[in-house]
Design a binder for these strands. Structure first.
Lengths: 329, 329
DNA sequence: CTGAAAGCGCTTACAG
DNA sequence: CTGAAAGCGCTTACAG
């Protein structure tokens, strides 16, 4: 293995000088810098991460705690965080959600990572107390129920729901149905689900609309039952807050002879990919996974480099009108 | 931070004894073990990963190089590798495919990880020479074109294709079409795509069947064009080797009034989740992501703990008949 | 069965 | 602008 001593010898300087060239923590004469950098390149030197972390108590590793289920949105988040981490010269340690609080403590206590980014935070997340007690930089993607003393970023789900209703109200719709997340999502206490539902309920009421919502599993039978229930109100528009069920919903509407958007307008909350994949491009409020992931990394790094007070950042929703919504039939 | 010295002091033993209790590398008297383990628990001691790696030249970290695109199968692989890694007390560093060969070298040279697991290996993958030159444990998930001197695991895609054809032949089908992966997949030189196509072509021919294959993007227009082309041969069965296009294909068949399986049998290569999500449960050859991920971790760990000659492992395909295939109409 | 000590490869005050 | 040296927290021969 090539060490800093090898580089120093090759460059005719002290090891500490090589270290300072690498870290930029003190000024180096141009010549010295040149010859050191040359040696580094020639020898293919890479500082030993463990030695560095031991000496500096910094790992330059971020730990991402992700729920590894089959879900395109999760993938989007992971990709966004990975790419943002790299932009900040950080490596990424991947933990799964089911490893629980112990794993979080272990990773921090054993100095495997400097900070944590936690996806899929639930209303009364059992990991919250642990996270707080770590006294380390943490950013949550998602919103816990009450202020926790931890920094978090999320889409403003209530506002997202409002935007959906406003859009449909503008088009003259008076009765709307909502295909919600799976029952399990509500049971897990995913706050965004409640906030979205609340936002939808409130603004439907404010707009004097008929409104009914149903949770919906992502398999055919669940979708059929859900639509059976919703269609009883004879809605002219559907808000789908369930990306996995989305293709099934569209297929089932089709099967029932309901044309989108002629007979039924559809607004979906999903990734842009899912929105533009089917026969009819969908009007959506998209989940800004890339933006949220990038933000999370930036906030956690700001915490690493200097203490920051905890803050909660809610991104305003963006509704993109596409072909799946039209004026009330 | 709690160090091994704190634990040793609390337990009234030497630091080395604590180390040996932890590693099990020499026999310890039951009393000593007990008191040390108590101190460890009481103090909440976690060995410093960097110090450990520096002293032992082992990190207990595996690096996973994954293509972070929106793809459920990729998610399955990542989840499987993460879970298997944890079962072997290894942590997981996540690298993205687009970081290229330099990142691989960096991660190994800087002792951030002991070994690499590489997903989505292509026929003439530019990372192969780097990977080989690392002289470190590496397991590829996927198959490079020619023996590379590296260990790899994959589904036997040619055999998978054969199984599809046999199944359809048994049902009396004489003309089949294949909805292939996106053109980009062939352009990237993903070997499994070629092997599957070759397997399908060969065994269709061997069975005296009419056969036509088309690559297919995963958006509505691409699927429509693809089906237009395929249906000209009046196939009675379709093999879909494109999980992302699958829901669109099914929707489009429906739109054309082709009932599955009455008018058209469908065999898909996809995850079991995707198979059982729609109105008609699909006959599939499933991609054994969990099994491949677990195997990859086991093989790489066997390489870490003792030199292993490179080997190539191809898992036999498993066809699960469901409701989407029936006898020729 | 256990301890004392060298050494892993860095960073960073300290000194000039 | 640069160097010599202590120290980070472990593991592992060496010794008994």
């Amino acid at each position: 293995m090539v060490t800093i001593i090898d580089v120093a010898r090759a460059a005719g300087v002290a090891p500490s000088t090589v270290s300072y060239v690498l870290s930029g923590k003190r000024s180096i004469s141009p010549q010295t810098r040149r010859v050191v950098e040359q040696s580094i390149r020639k020898l293919g030197y890479h500082p030993h991460a463990g030695a560095r972390s031991l000496a500096s108590s910094r790992t330059n590793v971020l730990a991402l705690v992700a729920p590894l289920r089959e879900d395109l949105t999760v993938m989007d988040f992971v990709a966004a965080v990975a790419s943002a981490a790299r932009d900040h010269d950080q490596d990424l340690l991947l933990l799964t959600k089911d490893e629980g609080p112990t794993a979080l403590r272990r990773v921090i206590s054993s100095a495997l990572a400097d900070a944590l980014i936690v996806l899929d935070v639930e209303a009364a997340d059992t990991r919250l107390p642990t996270l707080l007690s770590l006294g380390r930089p943490v950013v949550l993607i998602g919103t816990p129920s009450q202020p926790t003393g931890l920094t978090s970023v999320d889409l403003d789900h209530a506002a997202a729901a409002e935007r959906c209703v406003e859009h449909l109200a503008d088009l003259g719709h008076r009765s709307i149905g909502m295909v919600g997340p799976a029952p399990a999502v509500y049971q897990r206490g995913v706050n965004s689900a409640f906030q979205f539902l609340r936002g939808l309920t409130d603004s439907a009421q404010a707009n004097g609309m008929l409104f009914r919502a149903r949770p919906c599993g992502h398999n055919y039978d669940a979708v059929r039952d859900c639509l059976d229930a919703l269609l009883r109100l004879e809605p002219t528009a559907l808000v789908v807050h369930n990306e996995s069920a989305l293709p099934i919903v569209l297929a089932e509407l089709h099967r029932r002879g309901l044309r989108v958007p002629v007979d039924m307008s559809v607004v979906a909350v999903c990734s842009d990919t899912a929105a533009t994949t089917g026969a009819v491009p969908l009007t959506t409020v998209s989940i800004p996974a890339a933006e949220l992931g990038t933000l999370a990394v930036e906030m956690v790094i700001r915490q690493i480099t200097g203490a920051m007070p905890p803050e909660t950042l809610l991104l305003p929703p963006q509704l993109t009108p596409r072909a799946s919504t039209a004026s009330r039939p």
